[in-house]
Amino acid sequence: MLRVEEQQPVEFSSALIARFDEIVKRYPEGKQKSALLPVLHETQAELGWLSTSAMDKVAEYLDILPIEVYEVASFYTMYFLKPQGKYVLEVCRTGPCCLVGAERIMKHIEDRLGVKEGEVTEDGLFSWRGVECLAACGYGPVLQIGPEYTFYENLNEQSVDQLIEDLRRK
């Protein structure tokens, strides 16, 4: 559910706008709404999540109604409608990964980070969640980290610990 709150206005950088301009060129004249999904990805990569003010700016840029942006952002699972940790560990929780231990990995991450699914660690660095099939079933358990969606495969407790350690030091 999308809750509209008073939020700080955001400004898009000129580099971001330039990327938007490139994306819009892919579609025929007047079909710029097609750019909505990729534009939201770019926005989220820059800002970390999609605030109402950010979505309103996207609507303004694409010359569509704000509701057309909200309904899309709330439909697709990749868009964050509230602030997340700097690194969001998204663990596949669907059948094939569970056959090879995904549930154990999620429990381990929960214990290691000390936060429940969807919550952010105190230092603001991490949050985690279970996501549905990531199309990497042969290499499970797997997790991904945006905004580049780097993949970590064949996970076990040790490799997860190592990954968290590496991200902390980064």
């Binding site: 892919r26 079909k31 709404k33 097609s34 750019a35 909505l36 999904l37 990729p38 939201l40 990805h41 694409l62 569509i64 057309e68 899309v72 439909f75 697709y76 699972t77 990749m78 868009y79 996501v131 549905e132 099939c133």
Partner: peptide
């Protein structure tokens, strides 16, 4: 064109809707 994370978009008409920004 990137999707947004939705299994249903593998259905061809849902995919077209998504490609139209919906």
């Amino acid at each position: 064109q990137p999707g947004g994370g939705a299994y249903i978009c593998g259905e061809e008409t849902a995919l077209l809707e998504s490609l139209e920004g919906k």
